[in-house]
Design a protein around this nucleic acid. Sequence first.
DNA 1: CATATGACGATAT
DNA 2: AATATCGCCATAT
Length: 110
Amino acid sequence: MRDRQSFFEQVYDLVRGVPAGRVATYGQIASLLGLPHGARTVGWALRAGHAPADLPWHRVINSSGRISLRAGQGAELQRALLEDEGVTFGVDGRIDLTQFGWDGNVCMRF
DNA sequence: CATATGACGATAT
DNA sequence: AATATCGCCATAT
């Protein structure tokens, strides 16, 4: 195993494992990859643009449960995609990670 | 190898 | 609470 793939390839594989209706944080993904402080690198991997079309990038948000993208850069698109999957946003546009946060395991509610 | 960047995170102010 | 800054890490140049 090892760096058979670049870091972002590993990020993509992990993001693909996030079930619909759930969201993961950059720090969480980085931690799963062995870099508890590589959250920036995760975001970097996604913004790089090398991501495949089936990559559910919209399920990745920051630790605040908030969309990191700025308006005009896909933030509205990300929110729309998440709401379409059943994720609800708070009044401040925040997601309740307690309810929609990914465990790091594909487990269905109930 | 050095510097810069970035869809973060935590802390300081 | 909002903003500013530092820390952390993989790529880019």
